[in-house]
Lab assay of single mutants.
Amino acid sequence: MDETGKELVLALYDYQEKSPREVTMKKGDILTLLNSTNKDSWKVEVKITVNGKTYERQGFVPAAYVKKL
């Protein structure tokens, strides 16, 4: 869990989004878990840094590609 009590997951593999509802992640990324009720895909939040500014983006990733921490 992070400092706000949200559950975290670790990306086990790289994943490139295939639709606007998904998010891209790299192996080793730590993501905030938002919903894990679907056995196939979990909703997560990723933090992306562009030019020194951090943005948050929500979307789905394959459940088999992440592990709860």
Rank of each mutant, 00 (worst) to 15 (best):
Y13V: 11
W42K: 00
P62E: 03
Y65M: 14
K39V: 10
L31P: 00
P62G: 03
S36L: 04
E22P: 06
K6E: 09
K53F: 13
V46S: 06
V61I: 08
A11L: 05
T54D: 07
T4F: 12
T32P: 10
T4I: 12
L12K: 03
T49Y: 11
K6P: 13
L12T: 04
I30W: 04
W42P: 00
G5V: 14
N35W: 06
V44P: 00
L69T: 03
K67L: 11
V66E: 00
K39L: 09
D29R: 03
L34Q: 02
V50T: 08
K26F: 10
G28A: 02
K68I: 13
Y65C: 15
L10D: 00
V9D: 00
K18N: 09
T49R: 09
R21G: 15
T37G: 09
Y13M: 12
V61L: 03
I30T: 04
V44R: 00
T37Q: 11
L34K: 03
T54E: 09
K47D: 02
K43M: 15
E17H: 08
G59C: 07
I30L: 07
E3N: 14
N35S: 12
V9P: 00
G52N: 06
M1C: 15
T24F: 04
G5W: 12
E56G: 13
Y55E: 09
V46P: 00
T49N: 09
L33N: 00
K39E: 10
V66G: 00
K68T: 06
W42V: 04
Y55C: 09
R21I: 12
K26L: 06
R21N: 15
V23T: 03
W42Q: 00
K27L: 04
I30S: 01
M1K: 13
A11D: 01
E3L: 13
I30D: 00
S19A: 07
K53L: 13
P62I: 08
F60W: 15
T37D: 15
V66P: 01
L33P: 00
V66C: 10
D40V: 12
S41T: 11
Q16T: 14
Y13R: 15
M1D: 13
S19R: 06
E17K: 13
G5E: 12
Y15N: 01
N38P: 03
D29C: 08
E56R: 15
Q58D: 04
L34V: 10
E7A: 11
L10K: 06
L8G: 02
K53W: 10
A63V: 05
E56N: 15
Q58Y: 06
E56M: 15
G59N: 00
K67E: 11
V50E: 10
K67T: 12
K53H: 12
K18T: 11
E56L: 15
N38W: 06
I30P: 00
T37A: 11
R57D: 00
K27T: 05
Y55M: 10
D40S: 10
L31C: 05
V9Q: 01
